[in-house]
Design a protein around this nucleic acid. Structure first.
Length: 371
DNA sequence: TCTGGGGTCCTAGGACCC
DNA sequence: TCTGGGGTCCTAGGACCC
């Protein structure tokens, strides 16, 4: 059966919410993000701000140089989460198959809902109208037979877009676009593709699978499928969490000392709190350090039994820092990630502890002692 | 110009097991 | 003599996405 997949994406989400909540900001170049003194970056820029060349992820200091009159607004994530919930609820009024990708975008599978609408475009218009009516926000929509093409379709229509790619026209739709438009092709892969002579998706589509594999290794088959608009992945509503992390960039670099250790403990608290809230415990703690020169390292330690609470996370992270930090090292960022998650079900501990716990410990033997 | 914070997935080497 | 094969787990780094 021909699938109908929608990618829905709110335009300049954080900045638009700020402009909705504060009429003073409407029509002005608004930039949401951290302060330039605190080494903040742009998290969202209104379309008025984008006219000055301001883009997401740009250092705030540079953004404010590009547009002296830009209004900087610190992010209010709690508010964005609330608005996002409203929007996702609107999507779920249309179909139960909604897969949120972030606060401001989601995939919808509306294959089974088409009877109620006069074609995919009408359904897209309905979504846009409902979102505008109930939240005031502008939604861009892409509709195609799979997620890959729907996503790229909504990207090409922004802002306030509604792009439908009929089945069978995927390759023709993609052909003129730059390879960078493909999901998963970032700056590095783009450079590799350029070096291999591929600039547009159409050029990529003319290459045979074996040629792509020779030039691009294991990514070859994947790129081949994407260039031809092939994507069989489904819109999945259940997302399993894999990690919980927190990190912080300091306004000024820090050396190891009370200030850095206090920051580490603060982050440990945040991770412990969110881990507990999400109903997981972790078997692995990852310490992340970014040096003043931007080199980034990670150090991790795993345990047979899940760690439990702030003090465990904190002591694991501090031990990793003890081992990693050398005198005179200057850091701009420190972070902790908890991975190898297990559901936090106290009842289950007795069931797995005897097998995973002691068994692993007895495996620590002198070399050659076993076998 | 000077580079956030939340994530996911992949690769590659090494230890270890049977 | 020159050195298995399949599998899992751990660690470190990196690309990418929003």
């Amino acid at each position: 059966m021909q699938r109908v997949i929608i990618h829905a994406d709110l335009d300049a989400f954080y900045a638009s919410v700020e402009q909705l909540d504060d009429p003073e900001l409407r029509g002005k170049p608004v930039v949401v993000g951290g302060s330039p003194e605190g080494r903040g970056v742009v998290m969202a820029a209104s379309y008025e701000a984008r006219r000055f060349g301001i883009r997401s992820a740009m250092p705030m200091s540079r953004a404010l140089r590009l547009c002296r009159n830009a209004v900087r607004v610190p992010p209010r994530f709690d508010r964005y989460v609330d608005v996002s919930r409203e929007v996702m609820a609107i999507f779920r009024d249309v179909t139960p198959l909604v897969a949120p990708m972030s606060l401001d975008e989601a995939f919808l599978d509306t294959t089974e809902q088409m009877d109620g609408f006069d074609g995919p475009e009408a359904l897209g218009r309905h979504l846009k109208e409902e979102v505008r009516k109930r939240t005031g926000l502008v939604l861009s929509v892409g509709i195609a037979a799979n997620k890959l093409v729907a996503k790229i379709a909504s990207d090409t229509g922004k802002p306030d877009g509604l792009v439908v790619v009929p089945p069978g026209t995927e390759a023709a739709f993609l052909a003129p676009l730059k390879v960078r438009a493909l999901w998963g092709v970032g700056p590095k892969t783009e450079a590799v593709l350029h070096a291999a002579g591929f600039h547009t998706i159409g050029q990529l589509a003319t290459a045979g699978p074996s040629h792509l594999e020779r030039n691009l290794g294991s990514r070859g088959p994947w790129l081949y499928d994407m260039a031809h608009g092939i994507d069989d992945s489904s819109v999945s509503t259940d997302h399993e969490r894999k990690s919980v992390g927190a990190e912080n960039t300091f306004p000024r670099d820090l050396t190891d000392g009370p200030e850095l250790r206090a920051e580490l403990d603060r982050i440990a608290e945040s991770v412990a709190r969110r881990l507990e809230k999400s109903g997981f415990r972790a078997r692995t703690i990852v310490l992340k350090l970014r040096y003043a020169n931007f080199r980034t390292i990670t150090r991790q330690s795993s345990r047979p039994l899940p760690i439990d609470g702030v003090s465990d996370i904190s002591s694991a992270a501090n031990a990793l820092l003890d081992a990693a930090a050398k005198l005179g090292d200057r850091f701009r960022l420190i972070g902790i990630h908890a991975t190898n998650l297990l559901p936090d079900e106290p009842d289950q501990i007795g069931l797995w502890a005897p097998t995973t716990g002691p068994e692993r410990q007895t495996s620590v033997e002198p070399p050659g002692a076993s076998r």
